Amino acid sequence: MCTHALGQWTGNGRRRFSAAILAFVGAAGHAGAGNLQVEPILLEFEHTQPAQILWLSNNGTQPLHAQVRIQQWLQADGQEQLLPSNALLASPPMSEIAPGQRQLVRIVREPVIPSAGEQAFRLVVDELPDVAPVPTSAGGLQFLLRHSIPVFVLPAGTQAQRAPAGKAVNTDVGLLQGSWQPQGHSASLTLRNNGAGRIRISQVSWRSANGHRVDIIPGLLGYVLAGQQMRWTLSLPEVLAAHGTLHAKLNDDATAQALPLAGTDH
């Protein structure tokens, strides 16, 4: 789950998002921090698994209300897209959680989804504003959290992405192809995933032919979903040397790998 960017709507109506979004709701009442916590931060359904469990916790001193929704997650024209879906259901979809308590929510596959490849969803958990906030003379803002958690439904014959105990297994970088087009202090990165499962991209860096390393994205960049394509515009901390390779860490690999991209040297 990433927390480094706020969600926004693009000009073509598609939604960009992060895993945790801090929303500001004006209120003539008390000021409160977002107290909704969610675990786990990723769900995987194996082929025969009918349900998963999500925990919602209230770390605050006042009751809170939360809503759980599930949306299909696609990447169209290199952009994130969320669509309504009934393939997964949350039970209960609405919860009131007392201070210091937590609520169990079942995420149910109904019906079982037949698919030859991995399917992706986003589980969106919203902390809802108070219906009738307690008035105060100072007024204030209410800070609310939105969590957006990746959910993956695996096809038959595949297992959850877990490396064997005691072994460092690198993701097959050959499953990716794309292009890299730096220009001044920005660059366009396009990646297509030809594999049957998603690939998470993080710790992106440029390594020039003389050994100089430039860290571009020290944390999470995002996912490239199975059989889909994603495009990012990245800010560069400095103008990059003309010759070099773009490296990134894939999934939970121990080390970064050089990405096979047009526009870079190998």
Results as ranks from 00 to 15, higher is better:
Met1Ile: 10
Ala5Gly: 07
Gly7His: 01
Thr10Asn: 15
Ala20Ser: 12
Phe24Gly: 00
Val25Phe: 05
Leu36Lys: 05
Leu36Gln: 04
Gln37Val: 10
Ile41Glu: 02
Leu43Asn: 05
His47Asp: 11
Gln49Asp: 09
Ser57Gln: 11
Asn59Val: 00
Pro63His: 11
His65Lys: 14
Arg69Phe: 02
Gln71Phe: 06
Ala76Pro: 01
Ser85Trp: 11
Ala87Leu: 15
Pro92Thr: 08
Glu96Leu: 13
Ile97Cys: 13
Pro99Val: 02
Val105Arg: 13
Val108Cys: 08
Val108Asn: 07
Arg109Phe: 02
Val112Asp: 11
Ser115Ala: 15
Gly117Ile: 06
Glu118Asn: 00
Glu118Ile: 01
Leu123Phe: 10
Val124Glu: 08
Val125Gly: 02
Leu128Tyr: 07
Asp130Met: 13
Val131Gln: 15
Ala132Lys: 14
Pro133Tyr: 01
Val134Thr: 14
Thr136Arg: 09
Ala138Gly: 08
Gly139Arg: 15
Gly140Ala: 01
Phe143Met: 10
Arg146Glu: 07
Ser148Asp: 09
Phe152Val: 02
Val169Asp: 05
Thr171His: 11
Val173Lys: 08
Ala187Asp: 05
Ser188Thr: 15
Arg192Lys: 09
Arg200Cys: 01
Ile201Asp: 12
Gln203Gly: 05
Val204Ala: 04
Ser205Lys: 14
Val214Pro: 09
Pro218Ser: 12
Gly227Thr: 04
Met230Leu: 04
Thr233Gln: 08
Leu236His: 06
Ala241Cys: 05
His243Phe: 10
Leu246Asp: 03
Lys249Trp: 00
Asn251Pro: 09
Asp252Thr: 13
Thr255Arg: 05
Thr255Trp: 04
Ala256Leu: 01
Gln257Pro: 12
Pro260Ala: 07
Asp265Met: 10
